[in-house]
């Protein structure tokens, strides 16, 4: 039983790590990766909380939601990567210039 919450807290930890990288690093590829790590954290929370039932089998509705979530995350990542490539082509690097540093 406590194992389940251990995994759920691990998911929260991944989410926080993702937010940290999302804020701190300017490179867009790192930001996209950070969002993916955050997604993984959310999936881990959902999957681990699905087995809280004392029944034999875990609740399948969160599992189905995670499959849906993975597909949505993949398509969003693909679109984000293409946008990043366009930005890279337009300004020559994949991060936005910082106004204060100019």
């Amino acid at each position: 039983m406590s194992n389940i919450y251990l995994y759920a807290l691990l998911g929260v930890g991944l989410f926080i790590l993702g937010i940290y990288s999302l804020i701190v690093y300017a490179n867009l590829l790192r930001k996209i990766l950070a969002i993916n790590v955050m997604c993984t954290g959310v999936f881990l929370v959902l999957v681990s909380l699905a087995s809280r039932n004392h029944n034999v089998q875990p609740d399948t509705v969160p599992h189905a939601m995670v499959i849906t979530g993975i597909v949505v995350a993949v398509s969003a990542t693909a679109l984000a990567l293409i946008l990043m490539l366009k930005i890279n082509k337009a300004i020559g690097k994949s991060e936005f210039p910082d106004k204060d540093c100019e």
Binding site: Y5, L9, V12, D59
Partner: peptide, 15 residues
């Protein structure tokens, strides 16, 4: 996460 209420028992049974 830790204080999430107990799961709805009806849903898995319904399934």
């Amino acid at each position: 996460v830790l204080s999430i209420p107990d799961p709805a028992q009806e849903l898995p049974t319904m399934l």
